[in-house]
């Protein structure tokens, strides 16, 4: 048997034990929920079995097209728009510190506006529908990206600038291969916050002003007293949030591989 190799029986057992440790609590919670609610007659906490069958009925697959699809589309559109504009403006502010300083109080105030409070105003201006939803997402999610980008660009090592000037590196390379890459850890951190904000905004805006979407379904089920339907929409949103997070982590791992390696080397 090879020493220290992962393919030993002991290695495999250890790894599956580690995995089991991580999964035992979630599994136990689901089982407990199932058991505790199985005979339930409570109006608001129906048996988990009913919720699961409602989930299968509604979301697999009749409502995926008309509801889940638009929700995800609008979320993606709003998030991308927020990220891109946040990065562009953030880089500009970071590279021009005097501009950043002049605009600082305005940016701080705009960031502090509780985005959910602006949704009625957004409905007034943009009506009900996708443009309102995307607008609402952008108005809230752009701030963490923008401010983190500006911070990241401002904090770039001055030596990077020296190298760029001394080797007369062209502005395109300077921007894309030096400034953006150097600030990317901060930018990605901002994008992570922006993602959870975007999800909150899409759900809320669908509840307030929409005719379709998962959030809309959620509220409609509640109003129609379709409690299992309501719970299944909640579970779907939970799962989606989790999946988006995992996707984002993959993205982060790819973009910041160099940064992890560098930090690991200095520890």
């Amino acid at each position: 048997m090879a020493f220290g190799s992962q393919v030993t029986t002991r290695g495999l057992t250890r790894r599956s034990a580690a995995l089991a440790l991580e999964l035992v609590v979630p599994a136990a919670i689901v089982v407990a929920w199932w058991l505790a609610s199985s005979g339930s007659t409570s109006l608001y906490f129906p048996p988990l079995s009913k919720i699961v069958s409602a989930f299968r009925q509604i979301w697999l697959f009749s409502h995926v097209g008309p509801d889940a699809g638009p929700s995800l589309e609008h979320l993606a559109a709003g998030y991308l728009l927020a990220s891109v504009s946040g990065v562009v403006v953030g880089v500009a502010i970071g590279l021009l510190p005097s501009v950043g300083e002049a605009l600082a109080p305005i940016l701080e105030a705009l960031r502090a506006v509780p985005a959910l409070a602006l949704v009625p105003a957004a409905v007034l201006i943009l009506g009900i529908g996708p443009s309102m939803q995307i607008g609402v997402i952008v108005s809230a999610a752009v701030w963490p990206v923008l401010l983190n980008t500006a911070d990241g660009v401002r904090g770039i090592d001055p030596q990077v600038n020296d190298v760029a000037r001394s080797y007369r590196i062209g502005w395109r390379d300077r921007l894309l291969r030096m400034v953006l890459r150097a600030a990317s850890p901060q930018i990605v951190a901002g994008m992570r916050t922006a993602l959870s904000i975007a999800v909150v905004m899409i759900v809320f805006s669908e509840m307030v002003g929409s005719t379709n979407g998962i959030g809309y379904q959620l509220l409609q089920s509640q109003r129609a007293f379709d409690i299992p339907g309501m719970w299944s929409a909640m579970i779907l949103l939970g799962i989606l949030g989790y999946l988006l997070n995992i996707l984002f982590r993959g993205f982060e791992r790819g973009v910041l591989a160099w940064h992890r390696g560098m930090r690991g080397a200095s520890d």
């Binding site: 030596q159 990077v160 020296d162 291969r177 890459r181 150097a182 990317s184 160099w258 560098m262």
Partner: peptide, 8 residues
């Protein structure tokens, strides 16, 4: 360490 680009 500061003049070389760590992401390249």
């Amino acid at each position: 360490s500061r003049s070389l680009m760590p992401w390249m």
